[in-house]
Design a protein around this nucleic acid. Structure first.
Lengths: 359, 359
DNA sequence: CTGAAAGCGCTTACAG
DNA sequence: CTGAAAGCGCTTACAG
């Protein structure tokens, strides 16, 4: 049978519309731009013609002519991670309401893929880019792009050594608040689980705990800072090592929620119920613990809020031309889902071999 | 201080590159397209000039001239849902390796937003679109777009009445397999929880259960098909109603994983442990139960695989010009995470007032 | 291999 | 309000 030569296969342009409507192509263009200068009669004829010929606006041509773009690029390290997915949704809200379209791409935590994606977006002429950097991104990887004419704002992860505008969560304040919460419940010894001291999250979050304890006249014992991979298995392992220490604390803070997950697993493996027998605090940023572990008390950064804030900042840079690097902080709030005070309570705790806390 | 007049503010074009390299702009264009016809000397001078002036390729201009596009649109109903996020990642893999760039957008389950996003993508001249429809999308909402020249493939959700190519999970087969699994564990009565009979998922999935029971010489009792909203609260409610029925089954299948979540909640509320006291099967498609309820046995459709398959099909349509609507099925496999046989076991089951099963 | 020229689909002054 | 004309940054035959 073969396909017949299709006379309509060439996409209609404003010229076709103009012909059908019986006006000039300037008029069509004016109508498309909703310019009120066009007479109502001409306008409706054009609109009818557009429908009739099945015209679809070629925004790339328009952008080329106007040498501007209505697109903003969002480069996310991992859409699969609900924190970043929700953040992207927040960005979308703002970007959309500002009349831009969002081009979203994801790097899967690959630095090479990130470079490709960034170039692609730049070649496509986006007006600005929000980048949530892939793990392992070095300042040098981004330097060239940061120097270019299109504004790039970093979200969530900061890159030491890069002069860039970055929106990060207020990790120290969140951690501090969580620690005060635990102290308020009566815990005078609190452990720290997971992560490694050479990362900025570890330092910042642990410092919140340290400071809060110091302010309350308590001592943070370094022995109870248990390092591990910042993963769920890491959390299991760290909790195991903590529980092996005689007279260990019955409260801990975890470097992130993956570790908190694992710590809960480890706790249950030892016959303890998190949030009842042992106070445990996580940070909502890796696994979306929000929905998954209802009993877990967490320091939460609202991902949508981060997204909205970041997008606002990018839009501002685009319109103002401002390029001074700046670090912006979004609030982290404590979400208490299980209280676990009375750390001296007997019962399962005692059964697990823990020494009651001293007040 | 004010910003100084920036002499380099105008983005460099191939003309600037040509000037610096001392060649014609045709040559620059040839180099950019990696055309081997250019002499090595000219090529390296051009490459150097590109770096020197900070040239970035304007792909929109190129696309306009060539009247083709290197972009593919992915419209997702909810990136926040890990199933769809992973699906998008699968799509990205294929799209990328085929040399396209992916423009991803999300509709947040809003039909109006979906219409806007689709139009935007079409205006941006994408070569094809993959659409995972927003809940409540009617065939009529998409009819106009489907008739257009750019191929659109639907993913995951099919729209009855729309002549479109759709990639869906093999719900019936998955459901059938799950039912056989429960039967193999010794259950001769199985309940059905959640959803409403006027949806195609409900019908397809329930039919898998019905058929499997019939094949095993068992009777599916309609009284144990408990309708409810396909949500977590709906699941709680449906499970509650089931448990209120005297002599109810100790196994059920749930219309989706949100309901399965709720059913677990309901079970625990009644002092029963899902996967130990009561066999429960969900479908991995709404809430990403994969990670969240480790004890839940599910019928899983690999979201990445769906994404890859869908993208392949779209790419094929783009290159072949084929437009015949077609329904493609991707396999669903049973993921057993908790076995719960011996449905006549006493203990907590009896305590909850359930009558032991008869074999 | 290079240069001059036309054209992709739009917008934008500028006369009428 | 409309038409003719130039130009956005590229590609593409087509002579040289």
């Amino acid at each position: 049978m073969g396909r017949l030569e299709d006379p309509v296969s060439a996409k209609p342009t404003i010229l076709d519309v103009a012909r059908v409507a019986g006006v000039s192509k300037s008029t069509v263009s004016l109508v498309l731009q909703k310019n009120p200068i066009v007479s109502e009669g001409a306008r409706s004829r054009v609109l009818a013609a557009i429908r009739q010929v099945g015209y679809v606006y070629n925004r790339n041509a328009a952008n080329l002519r106007q040498s501007r773009s209505n697109a903003i690029g969002i480069v996310v390290n991992d859409v699969t991670n609900s924190f970043f997915a929700e953040m992207a949704v927040g960005m979308d809200m703002i970007v959309q309401s500002a009349g831009f379209v969002q081009l979203m791409a994801h790097t899967g935590e690959s630095v090479e893929r990130q470079a490709e994606v960034l170039s692609a977006m730049l070649e496509h002429g986006v007006s600005g880019i929000i980048l949530s950097p892939a793990r392992g991104t070095r300042a040098a990887d981004l330097k060239a792009h940061m120097a270019g004419p299109v504004p790039i704002v970093l979200a969530v992860r900061d890159l030491p050594g890069l002069r860039a505008t970055t929106v990060v969560a207020d990790n120290r304040a969140g951690s501090h608040e969580a620690a005060r919460h635990l102290i308020g419940l009566g815990h005078c010894r609190i452990a720290w689980l997971g992560g490694f001291p050479d990362t900025s999250v570890y330092q910042t979050r642990l410092s919140g705990l340290r400071d809060a304890m110091a302010e309350a006249g308590l001592l943070f014992e370094e022995a109870y800072a248990v390092e591990s991979n910042a993963s769920r298995p890491g959390g299991v392992q760290a909790m195991g090592r903590l529980l092996d220490m005689p007279g260990h604390p019955m409260a801990c803070m975890c470097v992130n929620d993956a570790v908190a997950f694992g710590a809960c697993d480890g706790l249950r493996g030892a016959g303890l119920e998190p949030g009842r027998d042992f106070a445990i605090v996580g940070f909502d940023d890796v696994m979306g613990a929000r929905t998954a572990v209802p009993a877990l008390t967490t320091v939460a950064t609202d991902p949508e809020a981060v997204g909205r804030r970041t997008a606002q900042i990018l839009l501002h840079r685009i319109s103002s031309g401002d390029v001074r690097p700046e670090t912006i902080t979004t609030p982290a709030r404590l979400v208490v889902r299980a209280s676990c005070g009375e750390p001296w309570s007997a019962g399962p705790v005692a059964a697990a071999g823990a020494v009651p806390e001293m007040r």
